Computed example of a mutant assay.
Amino acid sequence: MGASCAKPVCKPLSGDFDDRYRPQRLFYPAGFAVYITLNRRKIMPAKVPHSSNVAGDFYVEDGCCTSCSMPFTVAPDLFESHPDGHCYVSKQPTIPAEVHRMTMAFEVQDVGCIRYKGQNRVIKILLIGKGEGDQIDHLDADLDLLNREVKADRWGLK
């Protein structure tokens, strides 16, 4: 494939792809390469929690918050706002009522900054059922399939 590139400036785009998938490289005269990865998923970088989050399974992603204040409308006891306007999880839910309020915060958030990194399958299934499965850091294969089915059903593709 390198022989088809007339200029030495033609380089493939960088990115971490799963080793099982070999993207095709298409070289264009302008000197850039484009990866076509049909039906393949790129490995996403790990989400970084904001430094003010308390330790636990729920967190607000660093640099993601738009200061919408929506989580405060349903779970004011679980969130606080940093002086720069970035919200963060100030208390991890410990009782079922708090878990319910935390999962409601997932539904009202504007851009998906609240995330779940825990291993509790019940909470994962609850979030998937609410259409928030993409906010879970680690989904097992069966739950990933369930998440895709729920999304397809919500989008009317099923």
Rank of each mutant, 00 (worst) to 15 (best):
T103W: 05
T103F: 03
T103V: 12
T103A: 06
T103Q: 15
M104C: 07
M104Y: 06
M104R: 05
M104E: 15
A105V: 05
A105D: 10
A105H: 08
A105S: 15
A105W: 10
F106M: 05
F106H: 05
F106L: 03
F106E: 04
F106C: 05
F106Y: 08
E107K: 11
E107Q: 12
V108Y: 13
V108E: 11
V108L: 11
V108Q: 08
V108W: 14
V108A: 06
V108H: 12
V108S: 07
Q109H: 07
Q109P: 12
D110Q: 11
D110E: 10
D110F: 13
D110K: 03
D110V: 14
D110C: 13
D110T: 14
V111H: 14
V111A: 13
V111L: 14
V111S: 14
V111P: 05
G112I: 00
G112Q: 04
G112K: 00
C113I: 12
C113Q: 08
C113A: 15
C113E: 09
I114G: 06
I114S: 09
I114P: 00
I114N: 07
I114C: 02
I114Q: 02
R115P: 03
R115E: 04
R115D: 04
R115K: 13
R115W: 11
R115F: 06
Y116W: 01
Y116A: 15
Y116P: 04
Y116T: 11
Y116N: 09
K117V: 06
K117N: 13
K117P: 04
K117M: 13
K117R: 15
G118R: 06
G118M: 08
G118T: 03
G118V: 07
G118E: 10
Q119D: 15
Q119L: 11
Q119F: 13
Q119R: 11
Q119H: 13
Q119P: 02
N120H: 00
N120Q: 04
N120K: 01
N120T: 01
N120F: 01
R121D: 14
R121N: 13
R121G: 08
V122Q: 11
V122F: 02
V122N: 09
V122A: 09
I123G: 01
I123F: 00
I123Q: 01
I123A: 05
I123P: 02
K124S: 06
K124I: 13
K124Q: 15
K124M: 09
K124H: 04
K124P: 01
I125N: 10
I125T: 14
I125P: 05
L126W: 12
L126H: 10
L126N: 15
L126R: 05
L126Q: 12
L127H: 05
L127I: 08
L127Y: 01
I128S: 02
I128V: 12
G129Q: 04
G129L: 04
K130E: 03
K130S: 00
K130G: 03
K130Y: 12
G131M: 10
G131E: 12
G131H: 11
G131C: 02
G131F: 09
E132N: 13
E132D: 11
E132S: 07
E132Y: 08
G133T: 00
G133W: 00
G133V: 06
G133R: 03
G133H: 02
D134M: 06
D134P: 00
D134E: 07
Q135M: 04
Q135S: 09
Q135T: 03
Q135A: 07
I136C: 05
I136F: 09
I136K: 10
D137Q: 10
D137W: 01
H138M: 06
H138Y: 12
H138G: 01
H138N: 12
H138F: 13
L139Q: 08
L139F: 08
L139H: 05
